[in-house]
Every structure is written in C-alpha cells, then in structure tokens.
Amino acid sequence: MASPSLIADAATGKSAAPVRGRSRRADQRPGQRARERRRNLWIYAFLLPTFVLYGMYTLYPMVASYWYSLVEWNGFTADQEFVGVANYEKVFADPQFWNSVKVTLIFMLIVAPLRVFGAFALAILLNSPKLPFTGFFRTVYFIPVVTTTAIVGVVMRFIFDPASGPIAGVLDLFGAGPVDLLGSSDTALMTAGVVYVWKFFGITLIYWLAALQTIPRDLYEAARIDGAGPLGVFRYITLPMLIPFLLIISVLTIEDCFHAFDLMQTMTAGGPFYSTEIVEIYIYRFAFAASIPQLGHASAAAVLFGLLVLVVVLMQAWATVASRRWGNRS
C-alpha cells in the first residue's frame, strides 16, 4: 500500500525525490498525529504495569541488595551501620562461601549439559513426524515443570527414603541394601541434580522444539531429493540450522541452573554437611536461618553470586561466538 505522502505527492504532481528527505512525522496531518499519540499512550499504559512491577520486584531488590551489602544489619532493628566493604571481606574469608560456590558450579556443570543435550536429543525424537502420540509425550515431559517445586522436593524425600522409599525397595531387590542417596555427601548432590533435571527438563525441551519448528520443511525435502539419508539430513540441515539456538538455549539453561533454591532447600536443606549448599542456601542461611540474621553478609554474598552468574554467562557467550568465528574461518 502506498504511503500517505506518496499519494499526496501524486495528487499534487510533485516529484517524490525531495520528499524522501523529510520526516514521516512532518507529512502527517494533525489528526493522524493525534491518533498516533493516543495509540502510543495505550502502548505505554499497557507497558506501565510491567515497568512498575519489574521496578518493584526486580530492580529495587537488586539496588537494595547492593546497599545492604555495605551495611551491618540484623533485620530486627532499624539500625543499619555503614561498614563499607567489610561484609565482602568476611564473605571472601569464609570457607563456607567458597564451598557453596564450588557446589553451585559443580551442580551447574552436572545439570546444564544434561538439560541442554538431553532435551535436544528428545526434541529431535519428538519432532519426528513419524512418532505417534507426540502431543502426549510432550505433555508428559512438561508436567514436572508445572508441578510446585517445593512439593516435588518433599515428595522426593519420601521416594529416596532409604528405609521405606520405592528406590530403596528396588535397590533392595538387587541386594544393594539401604542406600541413603540424600543422606550421604557423596551422592546427595548428584541425586538432587537428577531430580532437578527431571523437574526442569521440559523447559529446555520446549526451547528446542520451538527451534526445530523454525527450520523450513522445504530444506528437508530438498535434501532428501538430493539423496540425503536421515543422518545426512541431521548432519547437514538440522544441526547447522540449530547452532544459533544453542547459544541462547545454553545461556538460558545455565542461568536457570544457578537457581535451584526451592528444590534443594526442601530436599536436603544444603546438607549433609554443606555438600549440597548452593550459594542461594548459603545466602538464606545468613539472612533468615540464623538466630541473629546477618543481612549485610547475606547481601554481599548475593551480589557476588550475581556477578558470578554474569561472568559465567559472559564467558559462555564469548566461547560460543569465538567458536562460531573459528568455524566460519575454517
């Protein structure tokens, strides 16, 4: 459809060339501008709740955390004594903090690849037009995602109960005896990781399924006409087309894997002996679980944790971009 300015130019018989240099706004009639302003007003009106809620529940707590990390405050009193970077010094000097960082990173390294590549493999399978009941299977894999995490954690405690849980029953059949998967520091983190992957696998699966939908069907058809078999189609069509999605799905999943507080708190509460104490539980312990909370210390740990997540995501983004450039050169 021609723009109003072009129509106007055609009506007056003027050349269109000079018009290109003029702003579109200048060509609009006052009525049109008023309508546009009203439309924009509605856009901002619809966006306002999001801005306000995001500001209240995301930006404000972040800014407040930075401030709290510089004060000594127990949360019971109104007294907030400014202590500069003393809280950061205490956090850095606390071996329990570094233990929680280590646990968090190990947990991420266990669960993120399982989620990204496991979900990818399953998405390929579920995307096959030959597979029956795909809708059913997709639903089945997504149901844990919409189940309340805290409830999952509590139920899993019963499932892994070494005295009477079903897992213990199965192990008993093989003569393995009672195995306390959540009560041993050797197995608790891995066990929690498996539950975490099961619980959140569906989100990554949906990402991959959405990515697979973006590959044009005619590419597949062309490849088959050219004689490509299933492996060839996967190797030369599917994989290259999905590489750009790998970055964003990996970043989203890794960032997600740093947040496992509700599941871990209900399953292990960070134990046994801090073996599953991720940074979020460390923060919670200082902020709420202590007889005299140390909100400054907890906030300093939270700020450092935020920076850690940022650094890991930036490193991963850099690695992905670098590898893509290297691939293009070669």
Partner: peptide
C-alpha cells in the same frame, strides 16, 4: 535408622 543423617 537409614536416612537419619538427613532427617529434619
């Protein structure tokens, strides 16, 4: 009792 190590 098995599991005691993590019992709340």
């Amino acid at each position: 009792l098995p599991g005691t190590n993590s019992f709340q």
